[in-house]
Amino acid sequence: MASDFERLIAEGESAPVAGWDFSWFAGRATEQRPAWGYARLIGERMAAVSSGLDIQTGGGEVLATIGQPPPRLCATESWPPNGAIATRNLAPLGCAVVQVGDDQPLPFRPASFDLITSRHPTVVLWHEISRVLRPGGTYLSQQIGVGSNRALYEYLMGPLPHPADTGVERVRQALADAGLTPVDVRHESTRVTFDDIGAVVAFLRKVIWTVPDFSVRRYRQRLSELHDQIQREGPFASSSERVLVVAEKPAQRMAPSC
């Protein structure tokens, strides 16, 4: 009979990883949400504009929660399996899903959208966002802050250099360089817990940038030690670092008449 460790590892390795649906983790892991309520914010703002774009939408799970879509709604996604899920999830909103690489230029004309949103983007092309945003338009994003899940990745990989800041100043500088005006840029640290080693494995397979070279084979010994620790001490605690970004593209000024 397989040990609890082997059983949980097998469950984690077989967990679905497409899209950003985390329902598999119910009862096995928890993540506190930032106080600003990102899903609520995009729902309110999408209902008030005529055109919106969601960048790196994943499976469209968050965008699909908006109550009232704008007349024109588009989304981009780079990974084909996610794109297929997003197309299905977002069809009721009349949303066009476009496949494009995360590091590739956005396939839209300049000044195309009143609102651009993005949750947990892996790459942010600030100048592209500025280009396709209409003057007076808004960029709204929840981004992964510096050092997110540090406790987890350092448990597996060992101590790593600590960054000098949370990422807020980097974001402010990037906005300025792209000609965007920051309205609200702030950081929040929230609690994450893993109740069993299967949840850890599934998370690291899904959120691949946490431990970029992760595989069960490579980290088997440390996973076994973490399993024993959870068995003795209870859930393993880490933290998510999140940065809210709300910025505007300055409205064009009319030239004075003669």
Results as ranks from 00 to 15, higher is better:
144 I>G: 04
188 E>M: 02
139 Y>A: 11
128 E>P: 00
169 E>W: 04
134 R>L: 12
143 Q>L: 07
191 R>S: 14
178 A>L: 09
157 M>L: 15
125 L>G: 11
135 P>M: 09
140 L>A: 03
144 I>K: 09
152 L>F: 01
129 I>W: 09
170 R>E: 15
148 S>V: 00
190 T>W: 01
166 T>Q: 10
184 D>T: 05
189 S>E: 12
192 V>T: 14
147 G>K: 07
176 A>S: 12
131 R>E: 09
132 V>S: 03
162 H>C: 13
145 G>E: 04
166 T>M: 05
139 Y>I: 00
167 G>W: 06
130 S>I: 00
177 D>M: 08
179 G>E: 09
140 L>R: 05
152 L>P: 02
168 V>A: 10
125 L>H: 07
187 H>N: 06
124 V>G: 09
128 E>M: 07
159 P>E: 05
131 R>M: 08
177 D>I: 02
182 P>Y: 01
173 Q>G: 06
193 T>C: 13
158 G>V: 09
133 L>R: 07
193 T>L: 13
149 N>D: 15
125 L>K: 08
155 Y>R: 13
151 A>V: 05
140 L>I: 07
178 A>P: 04
181 T>P: 01
135 P>C: 09
152 L>V: 00
165 D>H: 05
147 G>L: 06
166 T>L: 03
154 E>Q: 10
165 D>Y: 05
165 D>S: 15
124 V>T: 14
161 P>E: 04
145 G>A: 02
173 Q>K: 14
179 G>K: 04
168 V>H: 05
169 E>F: 02
125 L>E: 09
152 L>Q: 01
157 M>K: 13
189 S>P: 05
138 T>D: 06
171 V>T: 14
180 L>V: 10
143 Q>Y: 03
148 S>Y: 10
124 V>Y: 10
184 D>K: 09
127 H>F: 08
188 E>R: 00
159 P>F: 10
149 N>Y: 10
133 L>Q: 11
179 G>P: 01
178 A>C: 08
183 V>N: 11
173 Q>V: 13
123 V>A: 12
164 A>R: 14
128 E>N: 02
168 V>C: 12
164 A>H: 08
167 G>I: 06
142 Q>G: 02
141 S>Y: 02
190 T>V: 12
187 H>K: 02
163 P>R: 02
158 G>N: 08
126 W>A: 00
176 A>Q: 12
147 G>S: 12
146 V>E: 15
137 G>S: 01
135 P>Q: 07
183 V>C: 15
124 V>W: 11
126 W>R: 06
179 G>R: 01
183 V>D: 14
123 V>D: 00
127 H>L: 09
163 P>M: 00
139 Y>P: 03
156 L>W: 01
192 V>N: 03
188 E>Y: 07
144 I>R: 13
158 G>Q: 08
148 S>L: 03
135 P>G: 11
165 D>A: 14
129 I>A: 11
188 E>F: 08
133 L>H: 00
184 D>E: 12
